[in-house]
Nucleic acid binder design. Structure first.
Length: 235
DNA sequence: GACTTTCAATCGGTTACTTCA
DNA sequence: GGTGAAGTAACCGATTGAAAG
């Protein structure tokens, strides 16, 4: 609590109790009597609906309970203080539970991320091996096929089962933002090499696997995009 | 009987409002 | 009418101390 110095206050205290230690200042011994269960019950029930009392209600309540209005006021003050500290405790517990929950989710996501990164690295390796293999066979496979309908890779990889209806996932696979971009790739036949470059997805950069695939990992590896299917694309 | 806990009461400070010069 | 000082009431957090377990 702030302790601003107020000479006037000090003087007033000194007048009341000169040379007497603070805790002995009261010359009257307080004879304390606990409130009865009935009094507490009524006080509690009113406190539930209003934590602060208007002066008139305070008088009424005091009369009803056979207490001094001052006693009722003090009971409400103390009650507010107790209620507040209880509330703080509850808030703390709630926040802690939320934090623990988030922490465990974070840990499991971290593990999932690690496993995805590993899978990406394996796929990239396979891709690289495949490219080397193809270069060994012929040198003419990436020129767009002479007007046969766009890039080989574009057609094989990014058209869905329903022809000409690229799905969101496939567009993401190409790393293309818009339909136009994708069309450009098909027309110019430049797509093949570009979307094969996966190096940027090998690390922890914000260009994360999630962004890359546009899929939840479980969907990708547990259902349609199994490893074998990815491999089938390239064989 | 010593110790701990609970809680009514007190203390010192702040804030908001009123009164008065 | 606007302003600052003084008074007052209500509230708060911290603390005390009686009573109970």
């Amino acid at each position: 609590m702030e302790t601003d110095y107020h000479p006037a206050v000090d003087e007033a205290i000194a007048e009341q109790a000169p040379q007497i230690p603070r805790n002995k200042k009261k010359n009257k011994l307080k004879k304390k009597r606990r409130f009865s269960d009935e009094q507490i019950r009524l006080l509690e029930s009113i406190f539930e609906s209003e934590t602060k009392l208007e002066p008139r209600k305070k008088m009424q309540l005091a009369r009803k309970l056979g207490l001094q209005p001052r006693q009722v006021a003090i009971w409400f003050q103390n009650k507010r203080a107790r209620w507040k500290s209880k509330q703080i405790e509850q808030d703390y517990n709630t926040l802690k539970a939320n934090y623990d929950n988030l922490e465990s989710r974070f840990e499991s996501l971290k593990k999932e991320k690690q496993s995805l990164i590993l899978q990406i690295q394996k796929l990239s390796q396979l891709l690289e091996e495949h490219r080397k293999g193809r270069k060994g066979l012929d040198g003419s496979s990436t020129d767009g096929g002479g007007g046969g309908g766009g890039s080989e890779y574009g057609e094989i990889k990014c058209e869905t089962e329903a022809e000409g209806q690229p799905s969101f996932q496939h567009k993401e696979c190409l790393g293309l933002q818009t339909e136009n971009e994708r069309d450009d790739v098909k027309q110019t036949g430049q797509g093949g090499e570009e979307f094969l470059i996966m190096d940027e997805y090998r690390n922890d950069s914000p260009a994360s696997p999630d962004k890359f695939y546009g899929l939840h990992s479980a969907d990708m590896f547990d259902h349609s995009y199994t490893n074998s299917q990815w491999l089938n694309f390239w064989t």
